[in-house]
Design a protein around this nucleic acid. Structure first.
Lengths: 108, 108
DNA sequence: TTATTTGTTCGAAAATATTCGAACCATCAG
DNA sequence: CTGATGGTTCGAATATTTTCGAACAAATAA
């Protein structure tokens, strides 16, 4: 095959926009996702939402917003997806930001 | 007069929600406002937006979102309004957050 | 091959946010 | 009092997000 159809587009580090990142993190459901990824990469199927009955298309959309903002990485892995926080890129562009958000969201 | 009609409601420190704060900061125009307040309180009339022709009702609405999220304080002062960042409250609830946002937004 | 698991994408409906004029209110100057 | 300045609030139009079913696609299991 000529191209890998399963890889999704990710913004380059230098294209990350602070307001996009803040917006992506400003939704409780999306923040829940990011918190689960804080301790390390996770397969999407193991990443649970507050509402377990949420349709997969909605879950996919939440991931899309986070990915397009540059908050998470979404790679094809076997049958599913491997999700991870783009720590290095976020830290390089917005030092301390993701850390303070995660720390603040810890005590809820 | 029995009550001061000119004072607007502000959420208490313990009621500040991280996602509300992130959302308020996720708009470029609102972030511009907050950046101007970073160096100290400002009278609203001296707080300029990127678009100088923006109607005052729109400007007032931007301030409302920031105030209701608990990011800024909006007090009546003489004929106008005195705006300030709620540094202490933000720092108490979300340590380091506002600082990293301001630092990240500095180099744009 | 066929079926199952795991997700993405599309399109339309519903929910939210934004924008802005008009009306209104308070303060200060004259 | 009258007018000018500085701002809030309301309502309606517009724009953006969110939600979710249906259709599709890739990888694995049987």
């Amino acid at each position: 095959m000529a191209s890998d159809n399963t890889e999704l587009p990710h913004p380059a580090r230098e294209d990350l926009q602070l307001t996009n990142v803040l917006f992506a993190l400003s939704d409780p459901e999306r923040l829940t996702i990011v918190r689960q990824l804080a301790s390390g990469p996770l397969e999407m199927a193991q990443c649970h939402l507050s509402d377990p009955s949420m349709p997969k298309s909605t879950k996919s959309h939440l991931m899309k917003v986070l990915r397009e903002a540059g908050v998470i990485r979404n790679e094809s892995l076997g049958r599913g997806r491997r999700l991870s926080i783009r720590h290095d890129d976020l830290e390089a562009r917005f030092p301390g930001l993701i850390g303070s958000v995660l720390a603040a969201s810890a005590d809820d």
